[in-house]
Structure formats: C-alpha cells, structure tokens
C-alpha cells in the first residue's frame, strides 16, 4: 500500500479489527506497539485510525440538550400520581 517492502496487507486487516480496542486502551503493550509500527508505515491505516479516533472523540463531546420544562413538569405530574405522598 505504501510501497514499503515490509508492508503486508494482512497487517492492515489485523489492525483494522483491533482499532477500537486500541483507541480504548484495551490492548496489551505488544499489540499496541505492533499497531503503531504498522500505522507509521501505512498512510491508509494511519488515516483510518485517526478518523476513527476523531469519530470517537466527537461522540464523547456531543452536548446534551436541556430537557423541555414542559415535559419535566408533565413527568413530575405522572410520578406524583403513582408515588404516594408520605
């Protein structure tokens, strides 16, 4: 893929399968090192890794909407009907 003699398409697939675990820090040190070595030699895999990392980061930073006041009041009313007052 890069013209590198050491490049092997099998490594691309192996890395592709483990990318999420790599991003989440769920792999052992040796596997991480292998992935990093491969990514440093394969632009396509490096790009795949960076775009997936960015996808995860975006998800983690999407802000919540405030709950509509009207619905919050409605919910209180419903709970009040069910929950007996002590």
């Amino acid at each position: 893929m890069t013209g590198d003699d050491h490049h092997d398409h099998k490594h691309c697939l192996e890395m592709f399968e483990k990318l999420s675990e790599y991003i989440d820090g769920e792999l052992d040190h040796a596997t991480c090192a292998k992935i990093e070595e491969h990514a440093n030699n394969c632009v396509a895999c490096f790009s795949c890794m960076e775009t997936l990392k960015r996808t995860v980061a975006l998800c983690k930073n999407v802000k919540d909407q405030p709950i509509p006041q009207e619905f919050s009041k409605k919910l209180q009313e419903i709970i009040r009907k069910v929950v007996p007052i002590s």
């Binding site: 697939l13 592709f16 632009v43 396509a44 775009t51 960015r54 980061a57």
Partner: peptide
C-alpha cells in the same frame, strides 16, 4: 467497512481528523 480498494486508498489524513476538536 473495510477501507476501499487500492485505487481509492487515501494518501493523507483528512483535515477533519486533524483540526482542533
């Protein structure tokens, strides 16, 4: 979801993955 075939493989990381979040 496997990256596309050789011809379509990117030769760079897209901007949206690099700019500040």
């Amino acid at each position: 979801f496997l990256p596309n075939d050789e011809a379509e493989k990117p030769d760079h990381v897209p901007q949206w993955a690099l700019m500040p979040l």
